[in-house]
């Protein structure tokens, strides 16, 4: 039983390898980049615009709105990171309708990579916002005693992010795989639909959690709590 697309290896040379995870990730990246490029290639700035542009505008403004609701007052600063997280995870889940495709987010390596990115991005945004000392001070609040617990919290939540997304995506693929061997026709279709929903929910959860962590690390979040 294959648990992860990492195990499908097309090419390997020592430490370097080209597995299905990386390949499908490139595919998703290609879809996103080329799709965006095609639509934004000729953007209209007046009141008449194409429906594709409209769709992208809806997606972008919805992401901006979500980020703002979390408490980040300048969403345009964070949309590059948070929006891409959502779009990548969401697109990876939506592409499960393509036969033969396996979501790269069903690989713990991918989710770990994403979680590591979040793990690095949170202190970076925090330092950018309140300076190194300001950010580091947040670890000893309310008291110094809380320092180890804060560090444990940082690590554990990163682990939780990775495992949560991997578990959900992998289980979806697993269930479909198992059901295909038992009831090959109707049931897998229903489960695929459910998998699409689960994928979108996971994309939302992942990016929102990342937004919340960033908001917690930045001053804006702090002001809101104090207020």
């Amino acid at each position: 039983m294959r648990l992860s697309p990492d195990e499908i290896i097309f090419w390997q040379h020592g430490f370097f390898k080209l597995n299905a995870t990386i390949l499908f990730t490139w595919g998703v990246m290609l879809i996103l980049a080329v799709g965006s490029k095609l639509v934004t290639h000729r953007l209209s700035t007046d009141l008449n615009r194409t429906r594709w542009q409209n769709l992208l505008e809806i997606i972008v403004t919805a992401i901006m709105k979500q980020i703002k609701e979390v408490g980040l007052h300048h969403p345009e600063k964070y949309i590059g990171f948070l929006g891409t997280l959502f779009l990548f995870v969401g697109t990876a889940a939506l592409c499960t309708v393509i036969p033969g495709y396996e979501p790269p987010t069903g690989s713990l390596s991918t989710t770990a990579a994403l979680a590591l990115c979040v793990f690095v991005a949170v202190p970076l945004f925090g330092i950018e916002d309140q300076g190194v000392s300001g950010y580091l001070k947040s670890y000893v609040e309310p008291t110094v005693v809380m320092l180890p617990f804060n560090i444990i919290s940082e690590i554990s939540r990163t682990l939780a992010l990775a495992v949560r997304l991997f578990g959900n995506m992998m289980s979806g693929a697993m269930i479909i795989g198992i059901l295909l061997s038992i009831t090959p026709f109707i049931f897998p279709v229903v489960m695929t639909l459910l998998g699409l929903l689960t994928g979108m929910v996971q994309a939302y959860i992942f990016s929102i959690l990342a937004a919340v962590y960033i908001a917690a690390a930045t001053k804006a979040r702090k002001e809101k709590i104090e207020g």
């Binding site: 390898k17 990548f88 390596s109 770990a112």
Partner: peptide
């Protein structure tokens, strides 16, 4: 797979830039 982790992290950063 640690290579995949590194590769995916790079992929993600590239994707961020592309987006």
């Amino acid at each position: 797979d640690w290579f995949t982790v590194i590769a995916q992290a790079l992929n993600f950063l590239i994707l961020v830039w592309l987006m």
